[in-house]
Nucleic acid binder design. Sequence first.
DNA 1: GTTCGTGCAAATACTTTGCACGTAT
DNA 2: ATACGTGCAAAGTATTTGCACGAAC
Lengths: 160, 160
Amino acid sequence: MSASDPRKNSKRPDVHLEVGRRFAKHKQRYSNKRRAIVSLLETADKPLTITEILRRSKNTKGRRDEIAQSSLYRNLSVLEDVGAIQRVASTDDLSRYELTEDILGHHHHMLCSSCGEMRDVKIPHHLEAELNATFKRLAKKSGFKLAQHRLDLIGRCKNC
Amino acid sequence: MSASDPRKNSKRPDVHLEVGRRFAKHKQRYSNKRRAIVSLLETADKPLTITEILRRSKNTKGRRDEIAQSSLYRNLSVLEDVGAIQRVASTDDLSRYELTEDILGHHHHMLCSSCGEMRDVKIPHHLEAELNATFKRLAKKSGFKLAQHRLDLIGRCKNC
DNA sequence: GTTCGTGCAAATACTTTGCACGTAT
DNA sequence: ATACGTGCAAAGTATTTGCACGAAC
């Protein structure tokens, strides 16, 4: 399923190396726990909730990657500050996180209005280009400093 | 500012009449408090947070439109159930509400990653059409029942 | 040894719920 | 009279913070 799983297909340099660079730039330490979080997000094919990250950190076959909830929150905040991850909103009120677009590659989400699940999707390049051009114009008109856009499909997933 | 304030410009039938119809259809009462909430959302040129709705309900020059917090939450839930309003997510974790798209008209948001503020914007019809076509195809491929899409500009607003 | 990371428990913020009373049908 | 709406206060969740201890520089 190449279309529905864009993360696995995109070539990208070593994520830890890149994240490590960003930690260095911000004079922060790239600890093992932080590495573990990044690994989880890298492996997932969708943004993860706090609960999902906690659960997965415990299932990492007995390693010392288990993370306390408070540390997780704190680390997510730091990871966001150094530009390694970003928070994405679904239809429910659970926070979800994914690697930033410049690491993961630009993509969009298909999200279920019933259970809140998100899946990654990509759209054709020419559409992206057209969107960007339009947005740039709109932003300029409003004195808005455009950083990125988000575009999601909302509906019901197979399981709901 | 016609481009940055799409709600004021679009002609639409009386909102209370339409919302009233939806309440009737669901055999629910369209009480004064509920009317007051709808009026606030109709007047705003952006989605409102709980706090904003509460504050504004108190500023309605001495009228009995003041709403208790618990009632507000309950009413927002009912309003959502009858299809009058919808919850929209920004970059912070505050819930925001606006009238549903079929009442308010399809539009998008420009949202500030710093303060969470959202403003309404519209994009050209042909772009919308192209997006819809692409999405329909993507959804079909994944067994996903597409209901709507959301497309937002993210950046920094004039004030931040 | 000083600075930063971690875990636990307590505190806070946002949202939901139970219950008694008021309002509309 | 009955069903539904409202407000208050209590309960539930999600998230943040204080503090003591441990690890990294």
